[in-house]
Amino acid sequence: MDVSSILNKAEKKPLHIPEKNDDLQYDIGNLTTLDSLSINSEEFLKDVDNNIKDLTRDNAQLLINKLFQIEGELTDTGVVIQLPDPTTKIPREKPVPEEKPLTKWEKFAREKGIKKRKKSRKVWDQNKQQWGYRSGYGKANNEMDEVIIEDKGEIEAEDPFLQRKQNKQKRIQQQKKNELMNIARSKNGKVAKQTERVIEDLSKQAGKRLTRKQRLQKMFRVVQQSTASHGLFDKRVKNEPKVKLSKKQQFNSVTEPDLKNETKNHLDVLDRILDHTDVSINLEKAINQFKDTIDDADIKPKQQKKKSKSRKPRKPKKKK
């Protein structure tokens, strides 16, 4: 009986199975393997390049076999498989993003289950008879572009054009206030209340425009104190009001120490340092920034374009 053919068959391994054992550690999500057992350094060093190539080939074959075991989808370009998640722990590039605090509206919308709807970017402008952007510069259906305002007996203001401008400014201020309030609300406890209060005060002031006299007075007050002596030795102008200097700092007495409050004062300082959320000095800074923007908007009205030719002549108001 001739068994050689059978033996040959048994000896012949399939081409895709390497001779070495499969004792690798895999991270298939990253397409990596680790073979920690196969290297015998003395033998290996005899023909390093070829040995490395053979070992790498075998290990790569084992990895590829693992990949081809996963059932995939056949596409035009080849078989596409779903990779498992990587297991090797690799540091991130940047810290995990903090969760953004919800604004008042977002909170409300979430409670009510209101979802955002997509709006088209352009809308039809009836007056211009063309498509225009919904918002932004040169937007469609802009109230402010209208040259004539029809009086249907509803207009109460003396100058409806000015009225519109003022209304727009009001809306802008309100929006700014809302935004700041949302930031304030996202802080906790004490700071939130503090910030809210200041914003409330400021927004009340925001509508009021300083007169020229008031502005000069304000400037004058600053200048009065601007010398090294806080204006003590300066020549006085006629009827110059007295400057109120800021309060003198009160120091605790050394001879009669206030033992009751001493520990409390120290702890307060410590709290202020450790609790980053409560930094009352910077609150002012933040608010001042807000204030500046309001002042700018107030004092400098937007300049019209120099091309006065293109400016449309305003039609006379309709009298009631």
Binding site: N30, L31, T33, D35, S36, I64
Partner: peptide
Amino acid sequence: CLIFNGEEFE
């Protein structure tokens, strides 16, 4: 594919 050979890697 990244293939690491050697026990030191472990």
